[in-house]
Design a binder for these strands. Structure first.
Lengths: 287, 287
DNA sequence: TATAATTTTGAAATAAAATTTCTTAAATTA
DNA sequence: TAATTTAAGAAATTTTATTTCAAAATTATA
């Protein structure tokens, strides 16, 4: 829905009440709309087989103060032209035009965040932040795409000097899980919530008395059932074609929230770490 | 959601890499956006306390052919903008209420994607997809938070049986860069575009004749200048508190787009791979 | 720290574009 | 058919944009 004046509609409606030469100008504009903003008044006069004075008269007839104003207005109208479907999930189809792919992927990723925002339980987030703040160390468990989310969490919490580690394969996960104990927090990242290795690790962790946090899709799953704190994400179930794009973005956002929650609550303690790590990284930039 | 180019975002992101006088122009434009379309180049020079030559230089720096093109573009952006205010970037404050943190983080991550959509050059995306399709192998270069994005790319492209690898430390990056040659594609991921190791690797890669693709923030930087194909992202410059959250989400979205572009164009070839990898992963789920 | 090289900048010159004025042509009407 | 009005373009003028160039500021180098 274009909310602004649409000059093209104005021109179309005005057309019949214009003088013959002005009408030529109007028709020329309607036929070459996209090019108009880049034409000079002389160019447009040539293209419409009229004169520059007539083009200017046309602009004034439409109510503009001059050619420049007219161009500004037509540019704005072209800018506000609606871009088709906006906010439903759309899957990528084979052979899709690249432009559609670009907006679909972007919209889906945005939608994943938005949807996660609406399913996530704020009390659970608060509980998670609380146990993370008082934890002696944090261990992330995730495999494949979820492993990447874990690595991200590890990097983030390292910056505020939290003892933390990400384990991204079954074996190291089991060994790490065995060594956890009371006061430790284990964060399990799994889209499905049914990954064998993750459930195995969860069971070991629980036996050892550490607190478990699950980041998983909003759904019934063993992970969701058995973990102490449940942070749900939501993302479209697109076909396998699209890979696990949205869910990963949603999971990262949950990690961001946990990090910001902890860092903000402990700001007095952590700001020196943030400053230090920021500066040391900046020194690795040229110039 | 504004899906079109938004020049105001471009200006905001570019600001810090401009010369002092160009920066004055940029700030003046950001403060008087609505008036700009009706100002002559001389007016704008006066308003920004610079010279007409500098304003013109500013337009060219941003990539426009002249002042007129710039005005057309800014008019289009103004025409397409919808209810602002709501979608301003917001930073986390120490001690913020958890509920505010949750929505700020989510909104900022969404906005990063949206803004990236408005600065990314679709022709460059098309070129990138083309070289990726015909490449004999793909190598990702990135360090720190960007390294995680690289790992993600590696996982994605592996699923369609593309030869690919992510190198996330300076040494392995240099050795990998040395061995690349014609027909190979190197994807460089760096938010700043100035990371020492990345620039070094880029120089080696160029010397060896491989094609270079940069994923970096919309800004002037050595990486942006020197790479063959430039894919820009946009994200708010929040204070250091928030870490590199938005930029990472934006970069991942760009990777998603490249992957979907390649997979969609080669759907007939890759669907068997996608099915196979999907099934083998599903077998690792319980029940 | 002085000097060379480079980059940034604005003033002036030039070119291009927009606007006004004026004249002629066409249409209308008495 | 002649007088009047309206429409249109050519030419002149004004404004605007662009290029060129030299001074100033900055950065690198000795």
């Amino acid at each position: 829905m274009a909310i602004n004046d649409n000059i093209l509609i104005k021109i179309r409606d005005m057309k019949d009440s214009l003088t013959p030469v002005e009408k030529l100008v109007a028709e020329c504009i309607l036929e070459n709309t996209d090019d108009i903003p880049h034409l000079s008044i002389k160019n447009l006069a040539q293209l419409s087989k009229t004169s520059d004075a007539s083009v200017l008269r046309f602009c004034k007839t439409l109510g503009y103060s001059g050619y420049r104003s007219f161009i500004v207005s037509i540019s704005a109208s072209l800018g506000s032209r609606d871009d088709e479907q906006k906010d439903q999930y759309t899957d990528i189809q084979p052979g899709d035009d690249l432009s559609i792919i670009i907006s679909n992927i972007s919209l889906n990723n945005m939608k994943s965040i938005e949807d996660t925002l609406s399913v996530i339980n704020r009390n659970e987030v608060a509980r998670a932040v609380k146990v993370l703040r008082s934890s002696s160390r944090i261990v992330f468990f995730g495999i494949g795409a979820s492993g990447i989310v874990c690595k991200d969490g590890e990097q983030k919490f390292s910056r505020i000097n939290k003892m933390c580690h990400a384990y991204t394969d079954g074996h190291s996960q089991l060994t790490a899980a065995t060594l956890l104990g009371k006061g430790d927090v284990a964060i399990f990242v799994s889209n499905s919530g049914d990954t064998v290795e993750i459930i195995e690790a969860l069971e070991v962790v629980k036996k050892n008395g550490a607190t478990s946090i699950a980041i998983t899709k909003y759904n019934k799953s063993e992970l969701a059932d058995k973990s102490d704190i449940l942070l749900s994400i939501s993302t479209p179930e697109l076909t396998f074609r699209s890979g696990a794009m949205g869910s990963r973005i949603a999971m990262l956002t949950v990690i961001d929230i946990l990090f910001a929650g902890v860092a903000s609550a402990e700001y007095q303690n952590v700001k020196k770490y943030l400053t230090k790590t920021h500066n040391i990284l900046a020194s690795k930039h040229r110039k």
